[in-house]
Design a protein around this nucleic acid. Structure first.
Length: 591
DNA sequence: GCCGTTTTCGGCCCGACTGTTTTCAGTCG
C-alpha cells in the first residue's frame, strides 16, 4: 500500500510536471499553471489531506478541475498516472539539457527529433562530430556553445556562495563607481535580494553614454570570457566561474531598471499587474500612462527613486530582501511591513570557536579582534568531547577554559573595558538525544548551544526527537544549525523543522541563524513561521577564525529576508539585558 | 490549464541579445 503524499511531495510532482510539459513543447501557459499551483501550495498553510477529503481544493486560486483531480489523486493514492505517463515519454537526459546555456525546450526537442539524442553524453559526441551545426536553426557557434556549456558544468556548479559573489560584486562596484561616466550604480538581482546562494552577479549603471562602460566592464582583469557585449548589456565569466551581467541605462531610467533587475521575477509580475490595474504600464524603462507598448516620454510618470515607483503603485517601499512575492504585497497594503533588522544593530555572536577546539585564534586574539570591531560581547562555544574530529573539549578542559576566560574578563574589567567574553559550549546532541555534558557542567556555562554533529543519517522521526529533547533541556539556550545543510554540498538532515520550532516555542528555546555562508541555517523561508510562534533568533557567526566575524552582516541579510526585526533577534541586546535573558531562559524553564 | 463586474474565448509580463536567417525564432532574465 502506497503512503499518501504530503504537501512537499505534491509540490515536487507539480514542478516536475511543468518541466516535462515544457520539454514536450506544450502551451507555455499550461506549463505556468502547474508552476503557479506549486508556488501557491508552498505558501498555503491548510491541511491538504483534509481539504482533499472535503473536496475543497477548488477554493484555492489557480486550482481548476484538472489540478483538483491530479492533486487529489496524488494525496490519496501517493501516485499520479498522468505524471508516470509523462515521465515515460521524456528521457531524463533531456531534462538535464535544460541547464545548458543556449538550450531551451525547442532546441532540445529538435535535437531529440532530428538526431535521436537522449543524453548529455550523446549530445557532446554529436557536437564533437559536427552533426549539431548542420541542423536547421543551429550553427557552428551554437554547437561550440553547447560544448562549452557541458565543459563549464563539469568545472563549476551553476551556483555560488554569497561570500564569493559579494567579494566579486564589491570589487567591480568600486571600479564602476570610479568611472567618470557613471552617474549611479548598484548591485541588482538575487545578490541585492540577499538570496542564500547566487546564480550570477547583476550590476546596473546609469550613464549618458554606454559604450565606454561596456568596454570598461569587459576589460577587467578578472574577466575570463565574454558571453555578450551589446549596446546596453554585457555578460562575462570571471575567474572562479561566476557570471556577471551589466546593464547600462539612462539616469532617468535607473530606478525603474533597478526595480526590474532586482526582481524577483515573481515580484515583478505582481508589480506589472498593479500598474495595469491602474491604467499604467511598467517596464525597465519607466512607468507610462498607457497600457499600449510605448517608451513615449510624454506619457512618463517621473520617479527619481524606487520609493517613488512603489508610491505610484500605492505601496510603501518594499525592501529588496522581501521581493519574492511571499506575502510582501498583502503586508504592504495593510501597512504592516516589518522594520527589518540592520546588521549594525548586532552586538556580538553567541556561537564561536577558539583554538581550544577547531578554531584558529587564541582567546586573547579573539578579545582583541572583537574589541576592534566594536562588539559588546562574544561567546566562546567550543566543541564538546564527542566531536573528537574537531578537538572537542572534555569536562576537565572545559572547566579550565572557564577559569581562563574568567581571568581574562577580570583583566578587561580592571582596564575599564566594557567588552566581555562569555563562557560556553557547542554541546553535541548525541544519537540517543542526550547531551554530551551533564546538566551540572552546563549550568556553569553562560551560553549553551546544542547541535547535531553525528548520527545525521537517522530517520526524520529520530532526528526530530533528538532536537526536541535538546530544546527541552533547561540549560540549553539555543539550537545550532538545525537543518545541518551545507549549501551546494550537502542536503539538510531529515528533520521536521516545524515540529522542532514548535518545541522551541513551548520551551522558550532560541534558534540560531547560522550566518556562515556555507550554512545560512535556519533557512530564511522558515523564520516567519518561527516568528509567528514567538521563537527568538540568534544570529551567530560560528566563527572559526577572525575574519568570520564579518558573517554577522551576511546573517543579518538572511534575517531580513526572513522578515525579522531588531526585537526578534536576541543578540541585538545590550550586554546587561542579554545576561538577564540568558538567566531568565533557565529560570523560567526550571520552575 | 486557469480565469472572468469587458465572463465560456482569448489572454496570460515583456524586452535584449545571439545566431541564424535574410526578417526572425529561441533563449534568457
Amino acid at each position: 500500500m502506497l503512503s499518501p503524499m504530503d504537501k512537499e511531495a505534491v509540490i515536487e510532482a507539480l514542478e516536475e510536471i511543468a518541466v516535462l510539459l515544457e520539454l514536450k513543447g506544450e502551451n507555455p501557459f499550461k506549463t505556468r499553471a502547474y508552476v503557479n499551483a506549486g508556488r501557491t501550495l508552498e505558501r498555503w498553510e491548510g491541511d491538504l489531506k483534509r481539504w482533499v477529503a472535503e473536496e475543497r481544493l477548488g477554493e484555492i486560486k489557480g486550482f481548476g478541475e484538472a489540478l483538483q483531480q491530479k492533486v487529489s489523486e496524488l494525496v490519496s493514492t501517493g501516485k499520479l498516472g498522468y505524471l508516470e505517463d509523462l515521465r515515460a515519454s521524456v528521457p531524463a537526459g533531456l531534462i538535464e539539457m535544460l541547464d545548458l546555456p543556449g538550450l531551451g525546450p525547442k532546441k532540445i526537442k529538435a535535437l531529440n527529433k532530428e538526431l535521436e539524442i537522449v543524453t548529455v553524453e550523446a549530445l557532446e559526441e554529436a557536437c564533437q562530430a559536427g552533426k549539431v551545426a548542420s541542423l536547421s536553426g543551429f550553427g557552428a557557434k551554437t554547437q561550440q556553445k553547447i560544448l562549452d556549456g557541458i565543459e563549464f558544468r563539469r568545472r563549476y556548479a551553476s551556483h555560488h556562495r554569497v561570500d564569493k559573489a559579494l567579494a566579486l560584486a564589491e570589487t567591480f562596484l568600486d571600479r564602476l563607481r570610479s568611472h567618470p561616466d557613471v552617474i549611479r550604480c548598484s548591485i541588482a538581482g538575487s545578490l541585492r535580494r540577499h538570496k542564500e546562494v547566487i546564480g550570477d552577479v547583476d550590476f546596473l549603471v546609469s550613464a549618458k553614454e554606454s559604450a565606454a562602460i561596456i568596454a570598461f566592464f569587459t576589460e577587467q582583469a578578472e574577466v575570463e570570457s565574454i558571453i555578450a557585449a551589446g549596446e546596453t548589456k554585457s555578460s562575462v565569466i570571471v575567474a572562479g566561474g561566476i557570471q556577471a551581467d551589466l546593464r547600462v541605462v539612462s539616469d532617468r531610467e535607473f530606478p525603474f531598471a533597478l526595480a526590474y533587475f532586482t526582481g524577483s521575477k515573481e515580484h515583478n509580475i505582481v508589480m506589472r499587474q498593479r500598474a495595469i490595474q491602474r491604467g499604467l504600464r511598467l517596464n525597465e524603462y519607466g512607468l507610462f500612462r498607457s497600457t499600449e507598448e510605448t517608451r513615449d516620454a510624454e506619457l512618463l510618470e517621473e520617479c527619481a527613486t524606487e520609493e517613488e515607483i512603489f508610491a505610484k503603485l500605492e505601496l510603501p517601499y518594499i525592501p529588496p530582501e522581501l521581493r519574492e512575492d511571499h506575502g510582501e504585497f498583502e503586508s504592504a497594503e495593510a501597512n504592516d511591513l516589518p522594520r527589518l533588522i540592520e546588521w549594525t544593530e548586532l552586538r556580538g555572536s553567541l556561537h564561536n570557536h577558539s583554538n581550544w577546539s577547531d578554531g584558529r585564534q587564541t582567546l586573547e586574539e579573539i578579545i582583541a579582534h572583537c574589541q576592534d570591531l566594536g562588539c559588546d560581547y562574544w561567546a566562546v562555544t567550543d566543541h564538546s568531547k564527542s566531536s573528537f574530529q574537531a578537538n572537542g573539549l572534555d569536562a576537565v578542559r572545559l572547566r579550565k577554559q572557564i577559569k581562563t576566560i574568567e581571568s581574562l574578563n577580570n583583566g578587561l574589567e580592571s582596564e575599564g573595558a566594557a567588552f566581555r567574553l562569555f563562557t560556553g559550549s557547542e554541546v553535541d546532541i548525541l544519537s540517543e538525544g542526550t547531551l554530551d555534558f551533564d546538566n551540572e557542567l552546563l549550568s556553569e556555562l553562560e551560553v549553551v548551544v546544542a547541535s547535531v554533529h553525528q548520527g545525521f543519517t537517522q530517520s526524520e522521526a529520530q532526528l526530530t526527537k533528538r532536537f526536541i529533547a535538546a530544546a527541552e533541556n533547561p540549560f540549553v539556550h539555543m539550537l545550532g544549525h538545525l537543518s545541518g545543510r551545507l549549501l551546494l554540498e550537502r542536503e539538510p538532515y531529515a528533520v521536521n523543522q516545524k515540529a522542532v520550532i514548535d518545541a522551541c516555542a513551548e520551551t522558550g528555546t532560541w534558534i540560531e541563524l547560522n550566518a556562515s555562508p556555507y550554512r545560512f541555517d535556519l533557512d530564511w523561508r522558515l523564520w516567519r513561521y518561527a516568528k509567528k510562534k514567538g521563537v527568538r533568533c540568534v544570529i551567530n557567526c560560528d566563527a572559526h577564525r577572525a575574519e568570520h566575524a564579518g558573517f554577522l552582516r551576511l546573517g543579518a541579510g538572511i534575517a531580513r529576508k526572513g522578515w525579522l526585526s531588531k526585537d526578534d533577534v536576541v543578540n541585538t541586546q545590550s550586554q546587561d539585558s542579554l545576561r538577564k535573558a540568558l538567566a531568565l531562559k533557565r529560570a523560567s524553564q526550571g520552575s
